[in-house]
Design a protein around this nucleic acid. Structure first.
Lengths: 256, 256
DNA sequence: CGTTACCTTGAATCTCCTCAATACACGTGG
DNA sequence: CCACGTGTATTGAGGAGATTCAAGGTAACG
């Protein structure tokens, strides 16, 4: 990685999208809530937080009175070592839970930054216990999401530990496209990718230069088009072959 | 990695260590149970499973009617790619939960194998829902364990993605020693390490040869002694410096 | 138009991998 | 008791793959 920029903080509004009209719940990937659950979520959600691209949402090692979900936009989780190198652990898309570690442990193990402008739903950490106590289904969802995070990290780790440059890059592109699909961000076969090559490089464990050269090779396969911030999947099947295997991914049953 | 061996299966006894006398609960790293929780665990636990070293406990992509915790011995979680390469994701020590993904999703994302002879506590998957419904504290524990797994994987990923060979090796040795301590396996400053250099190599993402050469260098620092299966920590502080940073780790509140 | 962020490319160097061979401990069968 | 097979550890040599350094190039923004 290289030098990091700092951007101006832009917080935002207190009340807006009622859970009853949450746009995400319409998506096929999300399970239905019962009336009771929906009512609880309405009271659980304490507000919304809007942040501009580049803002830090969590800092590794700190705590927070809040728990968030992503309502719109992208974020990414990362760690920075003493030597300045950065590892991107995972990305957070609409419907994803953010900051669970901070709520469950005394501190969170990674930093989180807004990759694009984002809107987060805010939940008070205090009430997480109530959720577990009174709403078994939602408690199970939280555990589901934690287990899913574990699952994704396992795939990333396997990728970084055992795959070639081309495979890794193909894998992460497939993975990100798939997650964009699950969050309803793909129209036709294209979506917006709000990250730079450097983000990708830090996620797959290569230098920016090598990532760029590998990307050049990969473009020649004609399996996708990626210009500016628009990514278009052209031949998914072939890209899967290049990556070497298909990720599970699967449906989800989130908290919202 | 290289060729893998297959060993004879050896299952075992139905009833043995009552939860009320679980040896692990005495350890400082484990929280106390309430009387109700202890009583529930007693009924939740349906038996024990003894397996010899080398046996497979879970196969990636499959399901299981059971959920396990490790009562004694070591296991490891891994993925194998089409090209035959293996990534070790994490290790499981006494007190660790095994197979949660299989209980929560339709299938588990990694295989698990006994690193030494192990004894597992067996829990029926069916009753996991009851646990969530009736015992908020235990449900929280399960989520805690899932989040901890995520945390560890994040550290491994960062290590594999961003650290040098020496740092990675120092890190994994420190990490494993610390986990052995938390599980009460360290006497004085020494413990048994039931894995081979190949296991380590597959965990840190290097070839066996390079891991061996790096280990040779690292031995020269005199920070530890590792002969046969006995690992002795000599200068932890110095080893931490070599690794480049200290992992969180911390206490735990597990289910047993 | 000058600055900034990001992308692209070439060249030299170094890290890590593969291949290959040897060594040692242990268990088995003759 | 020794020959042999197997699993693990060790070491050297040569080459593939990644890194770093260094320079442009381009598009967006004020």
């Amino acid at each position: 990685m290289a030098k990091r920029k700092k951007t101006s903080t832009t917080t935002a509004a207190p009340v807006q999208t009622p859970c009853t009209q949450c746009p995400l719940r319409k998506l096929a990937t999300f399970r239905d809530f019962t009336a009771e659950e929906l009512e609880f979520m309405r009271t659980f959600k304490s507000g919304e937080l809007g942040l501009e691209q580049g803002n830090t949402i969590f800092v590794e090692g700190t705590n927070s009175p809040h728990l968030y979900t992503v309502l719109s936009g992208w974020a990414f989780k990362y760690k920075v070592l003493d030597n300045g190198r950065r590892q991107v652990l995972n990305f957070a898309l609409p419907g994803d839970l953010i900051g669970l570690q901070a709520s469950i442990f005394d501190s969170i193990g990674h930093s989180i930054e807004a990759l694009s402008d984002v809107v987060l739903c805010v939940f008070p950490r205090d009430k997480l216990w109530t959720l577990f106590e009174k709403h078994t289904g939602l408690a199970f969802d939280v555990t589901w999401l934690a287990a899913r995070e574990e699952s994704i990290l396992g795939e990333y780790l396997t990728s970084v530990g055992q795959r070639s440059a081309t495979e890794r890059l193909a894998f992460i592109l497939l993975h990100l496209f798939e997650r964009a699909q699950q969050s309803g961000l793909v129209r036709g076969s294209a979506t917006q990718f709000p990250f730079t090559q450097e983000h990708l490089a830090d996620a797959i464990g290569f230098s920016l230069v090598h990532t760029n050269k590998t990307l050049k090779q990969l473009r020649k396969t004609g399996t996708f088009k990626w210009t500016g911030s628009t990514f278009e999947m052209v031949d998914r099947k072939k890209l899967v072959e290049i990556a070497g295997y298909v990720s599970a991914g699967g449906a989800r049953r989130p908290i919202l």
